[in-house]
């Protein structure tokens, strides 16, 4: 895509086409235990991460970055991208978290897992805020792309990436205030710490891509 010739509408269309598919992770037939809920959530996250990489590669400008910068951006933002996706899926369902179409959790189910209720409440509160502000789908797409492009604590220098940024601004310019708020709402620290503690306590085995991403975050934090 020649970014200089792309209209904001076309850019939003590109983001729409980049959207990952819905991931399914069936709910266990028995009531949740701490281990089974964490297992469902980590399985889902691992599957979603694979799709997230495909999504990122379709964000204009991203693949022009060095592999090193691509890794750095994704390692910084993956939990926030998972969270905003969850919030968007849950926006029309007060009190529920739609992790997947077949994994809908009520707030109180968070009581199964030590420490997760606080995170569920935070996610539900952020989702209600999105609902109150009437977050539109195209705004969601733009905010999610911004989370990716803004995620590294180091400056990622790329002419194409800054032009991507410029393309993201017009669709969001209608309501810059609320959209800046959306960016501030999405914080992943608590979720990351919780997942790390669940892994350290051996409540759930964390493997594959999710393990890599969690380790990357942990190493950077030290």
């Amino acid at each position: 895509i020649l970014l200089s010739t792309v209209s904001p509408e076309q850019f939003v269309l590109t983001l729409l086409e980049a959207e990952p598919p819905n991931v399914l992770v069936s709910r266990p037939s028995k009531p949740f235990t701490e281990a089974s809920m964490m297992m469902s959530l980590t399985k889902l996250a691992d599957k979603e991460l694979v799709h997230m990489i495909g999504w990122a590669k379709k964000i204009p400008g991203f693949v022009d970055l060095s592999l090193y910068d691509q890794v750095r951006l994704l390692e910084s933002c993956w939990m926030e991208v998972l969270m905003i996706g969850l919030m968007w899926r849950s926006i029309d369902h007060p009190g529920k978290l739609i992790f997947a179409p077949d994994l809908v959790l009520d707030r109180d189910e968070g009581k199964c897992v030590e420490g997760i209720l606080e995170i569920f409440d935070m996610l539900l509160a952020m989702t209600s805020r999105f609902r109150e502000l009437k977050l539109q789908h195209k705004e969601y797409l733009c905010v999610k792309a911004m989370i990716l492009l803004n995620s590294s604590e180091y400056a990622v220098a790329s002419d194409r990436l800054s032009r991507s940024h410029d393309c993201l601004v017009p669709p969001c310019a209608v309501r810059p205030g609320p959209l800046t708020c959306f960016l501030f709402f999405v914080h992943s620290n608590k979720g990351m710490e919780h997942l790390l503690s669940m892994k350290c306590k051996n409540v759930v085995p964390v493997y594959d891509l999710l393990l890599e991403m969690l380790n990357a975050h942990t190493l950077r934090g030290q």
Binding site: V50, K57, L67, V71, E75, L209, E212, M213, A216
Partner: peptide
């Protein structure tokens, strides 16, 4: 981050 790099480097979606 081996798998991440692998997935980023692969051209197939």
């Amino acid at each position: 981050s081996h798998k991440l790099v692998q997935l980023l480097a692969s051209t197939a979606e």
